[in-house]
């Protein structure tokens, strides 16, 4: 469909979001807890945090939850009843307050899970998810979306994009039929508008020049010595992977007894020492050097080779979350320079 434009006041936006919850759709939006902001199930729109920066945790859990049941089983006399959950209909959900980088990431994540043998869980959730994003008016020193294939006013992956255009008012772009459907119920709350130039209201994001051509450089840098120093202070936790909107590695584990239980899928991370450990004790990535290299290579070399885009949208969450200050912007710049230096004749 062609993009539809509108104008909406802040007050009416809250009314619209209230209407969504009242209408029986689940609303997810940022909510503040202490100093951190998380996407949460919202029943009272006054709880929504309109913080200018991305949330602590990305919205990926809306498609790919921290833990989910793939199937459950129960012994019934001689036979085993297995519930594969296919009959479960995912509820329609509205996700509000994603930043453009988040929406791009949700789209890439859904594409990843749909590639080859499709993952029905992520696919069904994506079908049912309406994404209403807010353009960024502010970026911080860890952001680099404009160098990672997105931008502060990018509508990719969003159904509706709102740009605060001063005076408690938003310019609204309705980008999909799904967005239009949601709005149809709230006709009185917004006015028709015309395409507006919102660029003046958007954040200025510091470019990350090293990212151009980084993937190509990485392709020949597997054996480089840069990884050892670069990864030295990495503690090997999963903070970066778990706040990342595109990290999608997981574990499958059974819980319960052989008579009754569930097969679960949980987030996992290539940064953990056990991720690739064989039962024999052999580990293809024995130290954090190999594991950090895998994280960078996977995002910036392997993913682009396979999917045409990086496994990173430049949201900066990993840099903000890392307890050892493994700042991704800086790492990319430093690795890029280090690799270039080593491959120079």
């Amino acid at each position: 469909m062609s993009t539809h434009h509108g104008v909406l006041s802040h007050q009416n936006l809250l009314k619209l979001l209230s209407g969504i919850t009242a209408g029986g759709m689940e609303l997810y939006a940022p909510r503040k807890t202490g100093q951190k902001v998380f996407f949460d199930h919202i029943t009272d729109v006054r709880e929504i945090a309109f913080d200018p920066l991305p949330t602590t945790e990305s919205p990926k859990a809306l498609l790919f939850p921290r833990v989910e049941r793939l199937l459950s089983f129960a012994r019934d006399g001689e036979s085993m009843r297995v519930d594969d959950r296919c009959a479960d209909l995912m509820p329609r959900r509205v996700l509000f307050g994603t930043r453009p980088c988040d929406a791009v990431a949700l789209q890439r994540l859904a594409e990843f899970f749909a590639d080859g043998i499709e993952d029905m869980f992520v696919g069904k959730r994506r079908e049912q998810l309406v994404v209403i994003s807010l353009s960024c008016a502010v970026a911080d020193a860890d952001c680099f979306c404009t160098s990672a294939g997105s931008g502060p006013g990018d509508g990719t992956g969003s159904d509706i994009l709102l740009t605060a255009s001063g005076g408690e008012r938003y310019d609204m772009e309705v980008l999909t039929d799904r967005g239009r459907e949601v709005l149809a119920t709230f006709a009185g709350l917004w006015d028709e508008g015309s395409p507006a130039d919102t660029s003046g209201y958007l954040a200025v994001v510091e470019p990350l020049p090293a990212l151009a051509g980084f993937g190509a450089k990485l392709a020949g840098a597997f054996a480089s010595t840069v990884w050892k120093d670069a990864s030295l202070r990495c503690l090997g936790c999963g903070a970066c992977a778990y706040v990342c909107p595109l990290c999608s590695c997981f574990d499958i584990e059974d819980e319960g007894t052989p008579s009754k239980g569930s097969r679960l899928r949980c987030w996992d991370s290539c940064g953990f020492s056990l991720f690739t450990l064989h039962t024999s004790g052999h580990n293809p990535r024995p130290t954090q050097t190999e594991r950090w290299r895998q994280r960078v290579m996977h995002k910036f070399s392997y993913m682009p080779a396979r999917f045409g885009h990086a496994g990173c949208v430049g949201c900066g969450r990993c840099s903000r979350a890392c307890p050892a200050d493994m700042n991704l912007r800086e790492q990319i710049t430093m690795l890029d320079a280090g690799i270039a230096l080593q491959s120079a004749p």
Binding site: I117, S248, C249, F250, I252, D268, T276, P284, M297, S301
Partner: peptide, 24 residues
């Protein structure tokens, strides 16, 4: 190749080696 695998369908990331997923 005998990398560790969980999902078998190129999603869980465990068997990733370079640009390939060993399972896929």
């Amino acid at each position: 190749l005998e990398n560790r695998m969980k999902c078998g369908v190129g999603k869980c990331g465990r068997c990733n080696v370079g640009p390939v997923y060993v399972c896929k």
